[in-house]
């Protein structure tokens, strides 16, 4: 292993070298590579998590199942765990604001949110989310009242967390499809709230 940082062209060449050796040894096949890239680029992503949230906002029985056993409730929506990981969904309320981090690396609820953004995997977020969550939230423009509790959930390989954001005020008449547009990736990590209608 070298200690140098490589330029992007050099890194791309290292990937090609690894790929060509694995292909030659019959340890990978090209269609499988394309399939995985397509899965992460097109099929996994926060659009899945938004469906889970919009349904939980609209269907109290589903919400109860989601909070009691998120792994099963998310599978019920058709989103399978990619690595067999368990899911926990935590609910934001006026009294409790939840925030998700992975201080050790990048664990993230792939089934519902896809791959994490770069900032989630970056040293500034990982180092401060647990020690100064209110400061981090303010960086995202999210002020949490002093009297409300902030809970930080540190993800790991086997257990992934997702936030159920508060349903915004003024949305009582909205159906699931309209609500979807209010649910952002960041609101399901807990760094922001859902959008106002």
């Amino acid at each position: 292993m070298t200690a140098d940082a490589h330029g992007d062209a050099d890194v791309a060449l290292r990937v090609r070298a690894l790929e060509s050796l694995l292909l030659e040894k019959g340890l990978v096949e090209s269609p499988a590579i394309d399939e995985i890239i397509d899965l992460f680029e097109n099929r996994l992503g926060p659009q899945n998590g938004a469906r889970v949230v919009a349904r939980a906002w609209s269907d109290p029985e589903f919400k109860a199942r989601l909070l009691a056993n998120a792994t099963d409730a998310i599978v019920e929506m058709g989103y399978e765990a990619v690595q067999g990981e368990d899911m926990v969904v935590v609910e934001n309320t006026p009294r409790v604001h939840n925030l998700v981090v992975c201080t050790l690396c990048s664990c993230f609820p792939w089934a519902t949110l896809g791959l994490p953004p770069v900032w989630y995997k970056s040293a500034p977020y990982r180092s401060r989310a647990a020690s100064d969550p209110r400061g981090v939230l303010l960086e995202f423009g999210t002020a949490v009242a002093d009297e409300a509790e902030v809970r930080v959930w540190d993800s790991n390989a086997e257990l992934r967390y997702m936030v159920l954001p508060e349903r915004p005020a003024g949305t009582d008449a909205m159906g699931e499809d309209e609500l979807l547009a209010l649910v952002t990736r960041d609101s399901m990590i807990g760094v922001t709230r859902a959008l106002a209608p």
């Binding site: 992007d8 791309a12 790929e19 990978v28 499988a32 590579i33 394309d34 890239i37 680029e41 992503g45």
Partner: peptide, 17 residues
């Protein structure tokens, strides 16, 4: 999702391994 083509390929190779 990926900033360079090689990123998706690196992820895919590791996942297949």
């Amino acid at each position: 999702v990926f900033h360079h083509e090689w990123e998706g390929k690196a992820l895919a190779l590791a996942r297949i391994a």
